[in-house]
Design a protein around this nucleic acid. Structure first.
Lengths: 186, 186
DNA sequence: GGATACATGTAAGATGTTACATGATTGT
DNA sequence: ACAATCATGTAACATCTTACATGTATCC
C-alpha cells in the first residue's frame, strides 16, 4: 500500500468537514491558515484524481434539477473507505520518528482531530508526542552543550542551537496544549 | 538560471570546508547534525554530477604516483565559480518570503557563514531575519488571538498556536544570537 | 466591452525516494 | 572464509512546480 502525502490527507480532512470542489479547496489553501499547502492546480487536481482512483473520495452525482452546470463544477465527498482511512490515520500512535522527522504531518493530524475522533484520542496523541519530544529534546540539548564547550562560538553552533530550541518550543506547546485540553474536558 | 536545492548548497558548503568524496559527504549526512539531509546514494551522486556539470565543483586530478586507486574514490573540490556562487548565496539579503517559507535554507546559509564571509555578514543577516520574523510573528499572533476569541477551544486552533509559537521561538533565537555574536566580536 | 473571478485541466521538468546492482577491501 | 564497510552508480517511481491552455460568468 503506497503512502499518502500530507496534501492528500489535507484534502481528505477538508472534504470530511464539508463536500466541496477542487476550486473551493484551492481557495482554502490560498487564503486560510493552511497557506503552506500549494494552491496550484497542478497539485490539487491530480491529487483529487488519485484519491478518487483509490476510492477515498467521489464526485457528487449532479442533481438532474440542474442538468447543465455550465461551469462544470465538481463537488467531491468522502466515501466510507475514505472516512475509515482518515480516522485510522488520526489514530495512529505517535512514534519517535514521527516527532523528529514528520512534525508537519503530526500537526496536520492533530488539527483535524476535533469533529472526527473523540477528545481522548487528542489527549493520547499529545501524551505520546510529549514523551517522544521530551526524550529527543533532552538528547539534542546535551549534544549541543557538549559541542558548545568544545569549540568557540560560531554560526554553525548557533544554527544547531536554533534547531534544539525549535524542538523545545514544540515540547512546551505540547505540554500547554495537554493542560488546556484536559481542563477543557472537565 | 535554474535554482539550487538545499542539498546542493549543503554539498557545496561541505566541499568548501574540505575537498572530499561523495561517500565522505554521505557519512556526514548520516552521522552529524546535518542528519536531516538524505544520505541516500540516489540523491548525493546525481547532485554531485549536476554541480560538476554546472562547473561549481570538479574531481581532483589523481596524482600519478598512485595510478590506480582500485576503489575509484573521487574527491571533489570547489571551482572558483562554485566558490563565488556560494558566497553570493550567503550574502543574499533576507526577505520576508525567505523567513516565512524557506527557514531551512536560511538556517543552512547562516550555519555556513563562519569561514566564508566576514562576521558583519552574519550580523546583517540576523538583523534582517529578526526584522522579517518580528513583523510576521506579530501578524500571526494577532490573527491567532482574534480566532481564539471567536470560537471555542479546539485542536485546529491549538495547531495554529503551535505554528505561531514556532515563529516566536525562532525570533527569540535570532535576538539572542545577535546579542551573542555582537558581544563575541568585541 | 473589458477585467476579474470561476473552474478545470495538461505538459514539461526537476528533485528526491527506494530498491537494486556491483565490486574491492578490511577485519576476524 | 565471511561479514562488514568502502565506494559508486542506475532504474523506476512519485510528487510537486511552473507555465500554458481553455472557457464561463459576473461586475462595472
Amino acid at each position: 500500500m503506497k503512502d499518502t502525502s500530507n496534501l492528500e490527507f489535507a484534502l481528505v480532512g477538508l472534504l470530511k468537514q464539508k463536500p466541496q470542489s477542487g476550486y473551493d479547496l484551492r481557495k482554502t489553501f490560498a487564503k486560510t491558515a493552511m497557506r503552506h499547502f500549494s494552491d496550484s492546480p497542478g497539485s490539487i487536481y491530480p491529487a483529487l484524481r488519485r484519491l478518487e482512483a483509490r476510492g477515498w473520495i467521489a464526485a457528487d452525482a449532479k442533481p438532474s434539477s440542474q442538468p447543465q452546470d455550465p461551469r462544470r463544477r465538481q463537488v467531491f465527498h468522502l466515501t466510507p473507505l475514505g472516512e475509515s482511512s482518515f480516522v485510522a490515520w488520526l489514530e495512529r500512535p505517535v512514534t519517535r520518528e514521527d516527532a523528529i522527522w514528520r512534525l508537519a504531518e503530526l500537526m496536520l493530524r492533530f488539527a483535524f482531530m476535533d469533529g472526527s475522533v473523540p477528545r481522548s484520542t487528542a489527549l493520547r496523541f499529545l501524551g505520546q508526542f510529549e514523551q517522544a519530544l521530551a526524550a529527543y529534546a533532552r538528547e539534542l540539548r546535551a549534544d549541543f552543550e557538549r559541542s558548545s564547550s568544545q569549540m568557540p562560538l560560531n554560526t554553525g553552533l548557533l544554527a544547531f542551537q536554533s534547531g534544539v530550541e525549535g524542538f523545545e518550543a514544540q515540547l512546551a506547546w505540547a505540554r500547554q496544549a495537554l493542560a488546556r485540553l484536559m481542563e477543557d474536558s472537565l
